[in-house]
């Protein structure tokens, strides 16, 4: 039988148009790259390339601005949602999103994150939860699972010493201003597709003035976890997902009479 012809009409998947050619600095198999692609695809599909402002955090993804061809601002550690608040309020016609890790959004930036959600800012937070601090060398995050070994919990996270992990998505779901809260993953192709749909919904939600959205992406940090990329994806399914279950946590419409 004939070979598949390499031509445009046969192309069913390619690098998203808005992804730049810069080689990513992320470790092989890192979830960041996959999530970046989804954001690039969503922005393009919604026709928002000239209207989107991305806010990158402190952590491995500080350099998100090197990979997606939109305007970016780089926020101080944890402050991205305060930065986003003003960028959006002063430019209500713009799509404003933050891209933050678990250390950034749910440790040092807890106050800024919770209050942006509580105020119902029309922005989206993409929240990468890999239960560890990647860039600084694998220390404990607020989301580190009990028993999990990190550079600062070398004998495993012990609640008596290190306290308990917490789920900021569920916390935010209690806030009236937070209207779309979902938890996704990108460890399997089907999950990647669902995650993209969630990001798209969140972006539409923000542009429709429907309040604050959080898309948590349960992710791997295979270097920090000291596993191969494939083994990390398996570990995520076995250990992370039971504690951080996937799916929509909250999906409501704001009261139009507000």
């Amino acid at each position: 039988m004939a070979e598949v012809e390499i031509k445009a009409e046969n192309r069913v998947y390619a690098k998203p148009r808005l992804m730049l050619d810069n080689t990513m600095h992320y470790c092989p198999g890192c979830s960041h790259g996959t999530v970046h692609k989804l954001i690039a695809e969503v922005i393009d599909e919604l026709g928002l390339a000239d209207r989107t402002i991305g806010i990158s955090p402190v952590g491995c993804s500080v350099f998100a601005y090197n990979y997606i061809d939109i305007d970016w601002m780089e926020a101080a550690h944890g402050r991205a949602l305060a930065v986003a608040t003003a960028a959006k309020r002063l430019n209500p016609d713009r799509m404003v999103f933050t891209y933050q890790g678990d250390g950034d959004l749910s440790a040092i930036g807890t106050a800024e994150s919770i209050h942006a959600a509580a105020r119902g800012e029309n922005v989206v937070a993409i929240y990468i939860n890999n239960a560890i601090y990647g860039m600084t060398g694998g220390q404990m995050a607020p989301t580190t699972l009990l028993g999990m070994k990190t550079a600062t919990t070398p004998y495993g996270r012990d609640p008596r010493l290190n306290g308990y992990p917490y789920k900021i998505a569920e916390m935010m779901a209690h806030l009236d201003g937070a209207t779309y809260i979902t938890r996704q993953s990108v460890h399997k192709p089907a999950n990647v597709r669902k995650c993209k749909a969630a990001i798209k919904k969140a972006f539409q939600h923000a542009m429709d003035g429907q309040g604050f959205s959080l898309v948590e992406v349960v992710s791997t940090c295979n270097s920090g976890w000291k596993l191969s990329p494939v083994a990390a994806n398996e570990w995520l399914e076995q250990h992370m997902l039971p504690y951080y279950p996937l799916g929509d946590i909250k999906d409501v419409k704001l009261d139009p009479t507000r």
Partner: peptide, 9 residues
């Protein structure tokens, strides 16, 4: 940090 976000636009 809101100033940062506003000024950056």
């Amino acid at each position: 940090n809101m100033l940062y976000g506003g000024a950056a636009t």
